[in-house]
């Protein structure tokens, strides 16, 4: 340890920072990885972009979000609380006057839903890598000359994840309510169709994603110093911890299930095909 000396403040110079800093092994390549290291980020970039495009297109279209006969309400437009909504879809009342075109009907929850996903510890990893190349992949030099992480505005807002989580719980309740309403037959009584099943899968996945959140894991028990003094919370924490290891898979499968649910409702509502009924 003869070399111990305080790190001197160095001013980063483009092209001479990071792995090309003076003193480090002089290797020109940005990475010597031989695998397809860019693939993961490219895939994430493509899928997330497609999803955002789809979701934007669908929410601003204000169309084909509801199948009145079976009470299938798309999660992209729930809760529907504007006067522009189909009256039958307004389960929570009418809070707003008519919306102009392009304004999503679920405007009231969208910021929270987006906020929950944007500040999610998994999505952060995914979009920092895919959209900001910070880093593009492990042990691949990033293009930026400076980096300050989540220490200042705007990224310091990521620390608010837990508040988005609380709202996400509320929204999951709304989705659950929509699901219960979707157990409706064509005759107005009880019924189950393929749409109900799809909504059911979507809601289960949404709950799993929401509960597997790192903030949830912290709130339910992670913040404790002594698990032994709180056996019930420890049990809950153990359960959430197990779910949490699947957080990434759940993040992706909920994107898929949201899309499938919405698309199915859109297609049924638009009359492309009719709902496959299982009971009534």
């Amino acid at each position: 340890m003869s070399r111990i000396e305080a790190d001197r403040p160095v001013k980063p110079v483009k092209g001479q920072t990071g792995v090309r800093s003076p003193g480090r092994a002089n290797i020109a390549a940005r990475t010597l990885r031989t695998d397809k290291w860019w693939f993961q980020s490219a895939l994430t970039f493509t899928l997330l972009s497609l999803w955002v495009l789809y979701a934007t297109a669908r929410t601003v279209s204000q169309r084909a979000y509801f199948v009145e006969k079976y009470h299938y309400l798309s999660p992209f437009s729930s809760p529907c609380v504007t006067a522009s909504c189909n009256p039958a879809a307004r389960d929570f009342g009418t809070w707003f006057p008519h919306f102009p075109p392009f304004l999503p009907y679920a405007l009231i929850v969208l910021p929270f839903l987006l906020g929950f996903r944007l500040t999610c510890y998994y999505y952060r990893k995914a979009y920092y890598r895919a959209f900001w190349s910070s880093p593009p992949a492990c042990a691949v030099a990033e293009p930026h000359t400076t980096y300050s992480g989540e220490t200042r505005f705007p990224l310091i807002v990521q620390n608010a994840h837990r508040y988005f989580f609380y709202f996400a719980m509320l929204i999951s309740l709304i989705n659950t309510y929509d699901l219960i309403r979707a157990f409706r037959g064509g005759n107005g009584g009880f019924g189950i169709g393929l749409g109900t099943i799809i909504m059911l899968i979507n809601v289960v996945l949404l709950w799993a994603y929401t509960l597997s959140c790192h903030s949830c894991r912290h709130a339910i028990g992670g913040r404790l110093k002594h698990f032994s003094a709180h056996p019930v919370r420890y049990k809950a924490w153990t359960f959430v911890t197990k779910l949490n290891t699947r957080h990434m898979q759940l993040a992706w499968s909920t994107l898929a299930s949201l899309t499938i649910t919405d698309a199915y409702i859109a297609l049924v509502s638009g009359g492309v095909f009719s709902d496959l009924r299982i009971i009534h």
Binding site: P9, V10, K11, P12, T17, G18, V19, S21, S134, P135, A139, A141, E142, H144, T146, Y147, G149
Partner: peptide, 9 residues
């Protein structure tokens, strides 16, 4: 990458 790519950090 915080230090690998940014000596100054």
């Amino acid at each position: 990458h915080v230090v690998r790519d940014h000596e100054e950090n």
